[in-house]
Design a protein around this nucleic acid. Structure first.
Lengths: 345, 345
DNA sequence: ATTCCTTGCACAATCGTTTGTGCAATGGTT
DNA sequence: AACCATTGCACAAACGATTGTGCAAGGAAT
């Protein structure tokens, strides 16, 4: 039986005024609403004395502003989204907003349901979403309605909603180029979830580097269903079997890379002596692996901050940002996990 | 300008009934409230037609139930808390509750503020909190008020609130015993934040194993300020310098262990040939490190589920759980990162 | 034909704020 | 002395849902 919270009415009674006067005094509108300094002081003292905290619930109803933003991600336990969540809550709190966390479990159905619930039922003032992708009419609906939404990590060319993503194409290109520059000709690709922009852009960069390097961008060199360890493991096994000549791999995620390492370990393949590996997305452990991994580092914090800033700017000014697509730079971090192909040693 | 949401009044008008009738029909109370099947059907059809979603805001005010639970952690980007957050949102959603995420940034001041805000202003129906520790009168206040609160990862013997933690003492003991069993006599400890129960219990297990092994539990063998990589690095450097005889380290967190590995790398120390290492808390990368790490695995998912279940049970039944302290088992995972001390080789 | 019970619904209050409007009391003009 | 402007506050409506109560219409019983 939680103690009943103090209401404005009680404060008003304690100060000997009406709720309306108390409300205005507490809102700092004493001047403009012609409330005498004595009255104002009395209200403030009463409020302090009683430990009054205005009910956000009542306030939300009256003001038609929930003071909430939503955060909808496929997997809240993924460190990438967790980092974004942290940045979002920080910014939100700084602006008097609270954050509702929702996890779609990589399911489109859940995504739609949660989205509807957050927008309509909870009436969030804004939303940061990492959509599964695939169909996205629910997103164009949001765009049409003029909802305050920022898409992170993914984007959709046909949807007019601000998006924040890493420069995935460049990351894919840089990684692949680094591999090619070491003399590799047979380069495998452990991709994430096809259809997501983050995956497909990385793939595009991969292909561009191959073509530039005079190599054929063979589709059979690309494997993988999603960003998981399992997919990375399976794909690596398949690739090593189907294309024994492969001397380097580019993994599109931490988990994909760890899956590859598992497959390597089973075959007693060493990085980089027997096979080279580059992974997308840095991690604290990357430099302590059996062989430290060269990575494409993306600035997760910057992505989170940028998304939160865009969203809150949108909420406060009620106008869409000019730029729809915000690219956060990536960088290649060389940790010497790319060696020379065996054929050239 | 987001489209105005459909209200109950509009549904009622469309169905040609009063809002009260519409409300009862939608609540499935047609029978008990003597609403004719035709009327009920008309309301349901109107609601479907208009895409009616009842406003949680209005509902919260009227029902005096916010439908919210709070999640207050020191660092939302920490994978440990992120995993708990995910479990919490899953359970909450399943019970029609939404989750407010709050990050105290390891600051007691923030913790208090956010707590007050969540409880009083947002009027959450329940709260999962990982308190920084230190002073905790704000927590005993909660206990006294009978608030629905579950503490995770930490606990406080003098506070009557249900808590869910790993069996840290046993974890500390198991790790240390494994080290001792390999013949080590000089064993260092990279602790986390002193004063937190998770840290102090691990330390207790560490000490118990030492004593049982006939070793002196020398305080100078224990270093560290918090669970960060930096603390692990610094402490390792200090220990290696102050106690050159040390042949094994026990790190209380992933980050602490990575810090140790950095210090090892700088000194060209190999695990386990030159020095042994065990880390508390498993991670996907643990088996792919230069030397795979033996770990004490804690079941983060179980902790999250247990906390969420306790909280929701408390909310629904309005009664405190019988057991205050819930221990989730840990296990030792041997990955051969403990060798024989050099002196014995 | 009157009374009484049941059915089926509408009315109105309520949750805790915010805010437009109204209305006394005060003081200053002519 | 009559009038107007200002000051300082209270009253009441509104936000959108829920729920106790009231009331008309219709049928059954006397």
């Amino acid at each position: 039986m939680p103690a009943e919270p103090v209401t404005l009415e009680q404060v008003a009674a304690a100060a000997g005024v009406s709720p309306s006067t108390a409300s205005r005094a507490l809102a700092g509108k004493a001047r403009e609403c012609r409330i005498s300094p004595q009255t104002e002081e009395a209200v403030l003292k009463a409020a302090r004395g009683l430990g009054f905290q205005p009910s956000q619930v009542a306030r939300s109803l009256r003001n038609r502003r929930s003071g909430l933003i939503g955060l909808l991600v496929p997997d809240a336990s993924n460190p990438f989204f967790a980092a974004i969540a942290r940045k979002a809550t920080m910014f939100a709190e700084r602006h008097g907003l609270s954050t509702l966390l929702a996890d779609s479990h990589d399911s489109m159905e859940h995504e739609r349901e949660l989205l509807a619930h957050l927008m309509q039922s909870r009436q969030v003032e804004g939303l940061i979403i990492c959509s599964i992708g695939g169909s996205h009419d629910h997103l164009s609906d949001l765009a049409r309605k003029g909802a305050n939404v920022v898409i992170v990590d993914r984007w959709f060319s046909d949807i007019q909603l601000p998006s924040v993503t890493s420069d995935n194409e460049r990351g894919g290109y840089l990684a692949t180029k680094a591999i090619i520059d070491h003399g590799h000709r047979d380069i495998g690709c452990l991709q994430g979830r096809p259809g997501t922009s983050s995956n497909d852009e990385r793939l595009k960069g991969f292909t561009r580097a191959l073509v530039e390097g005079g190599l054929t961008a063979d589709g059979s060199l690309v494997r993988g269903d999603d960003f998981s360890l399992q997919s990375g493991y399976r794909s690596t096994c398949e690739l090593l079997k189907a294309r024994p000549g492969i001397s380097a791999l580019f993994a599109f995620s931490n988990q994909n890379a760890l899956g590859a390492l598992r497959a390597f370990a089973e075959r007693k393949l060493r990085v980089p002596e027997d096979i080279s590996l580059v992974m997308f997305d840095d991690a604290p452990f990357a430099e302590f692996l059996a062989s430290p991994l060269s990575v494409i580092r993306q600035d997760v914090e910057a992505i989170g901050s940028c998304a939160a800033e865009l969203l809150i700017g949108q909420i406060r000014t009620a106008e869409r940002p000019k730029e729809m697509l915000h690219r956060v730079p990536v960088e290649f971090v060389d940790r010497a996990s790319i060696g020379r192909p065996r054929s050239l040693v």
